[in-house]
């Protein structure tokens, strides 16, 4: 039986804030993601997307529930989880003083990519992401678009089966955002399981195979775009989102 690349069961995170007391940032989240699939986490700012993805990447420890990446539980085997994971977000920057080639070499090595194949892998990534002309220039001297490419190459340097993109287009201009989405689509076609969080509805519509609508830390609905449309009777994802978020609001009151 093949392993589901990403699976969570009642995954929850509670923070303690001195002024607000206990804050339930993520509430019993159940999601899965299969090979060659992009699962989109769609939610407003502060909905719990980043906290969920940070728990999956072992940066945060779940308060309760469980999560597995390639069969490894995030609390029991965090290093094994990270070995199988490439994490990209607007806050995962590159080291400015080293070159793209050194960056790729470092991340492949530290993520335990087979040593004898590292140089070949670095060359392959440089060619694949068209980094040749600046592969040996320090990152600090590169443009935003160049850095973005190096950053994605860094994310996949150790060829992980699972990729997490946490609001990756948030700081990008239109052209770079389009290019990034194309790269992510290519990675899906290579069989990667991809978790993609965004608050931009059009992005989720274009890219995601399945969408989970997250609001106030809880998943309100999960399905393909067609399934969500059918369930709500709304055509546009924005309307679908408002429908679920509104329902939750009414339940809450």
């Amino acid at each position: 039986m093949s392993v589901v690349p990403v699976r969570t069961e009642a995954l929850s995170k509670v923070f303690y804030d001195e002024s607000r007391g206990e804050v339930r940032a993520v509430d019993s989240v159940d999601i899965t993601c299969s090979p060659g699939e992009i699962f989109g986490l769609l939610g407003a700012n502060g909905a719990g997307k980043t906290t969920t993805l940070r728990m999956l990447s072992t940066v945060l420890r779940p308060t309760s529930g469980q999560a597995w990446l390639m069969g490894h539980e995030v609390r029991d085997a965090p290093e094994r989880v990270r070995e199988n994971l490439g994490f990209y977000s607007a806050s995962t920057a590159l080291y400015p003083k080293i070159t793209p080639r050194e960056t790729l070499r470092f991340f492949a090595r530290v993520n335990r990519y087979p040593r004898r194949r590292i140089e070949a892998r670095v060359d392959e990534l440089i060619e694949r992401f068209s980094l040749e002309s600046y592969a040996d220039t320090r990152v600090e001297k590169l443009s935003g678009g160049m850095k973005q490419k190096v950053s994605i190459a860094r994310t996949v340097a150790h060829d992980p089966p699972v990729l997490i993109f946490d609001e990756p287009t948030v700081a990008l201009d239109v052209l770079n955002a389009i290019e990034l989405r194309e790269i992510i689509a290519r990675l899906r076609s290579e069989g990667k399981a991809i978790l993609f969080s965004t608050h931009v509805m059009s992005e989720a519509e274009q890219l995601c195979d399945r969408i989970g609508i997250i609001h106030h830390g809880a998943i309100l609905a999960t399905g393909t775009l067609d399934q969500l449309r059918e369930a709500t009777g709304r055509h546009y994802l924005e309307e679908v989102f408002v429908h679920y978020a509104g329902m939750r609001g009414k339940i809450g009151t």
Binding site: S57, E83, F87, S89, A93, Y95, P96, R112, R154, H158
Partner: peptide, 12 residues
């Protein structure tokens, strides 16, 4: 620099 989280997600 924003590299802290990058480092926290490596397999070390």
């Amino acid at each position: 620099r924003g590299t802290w989280e990058t480092l926290m997600t490596v397999a070390a």
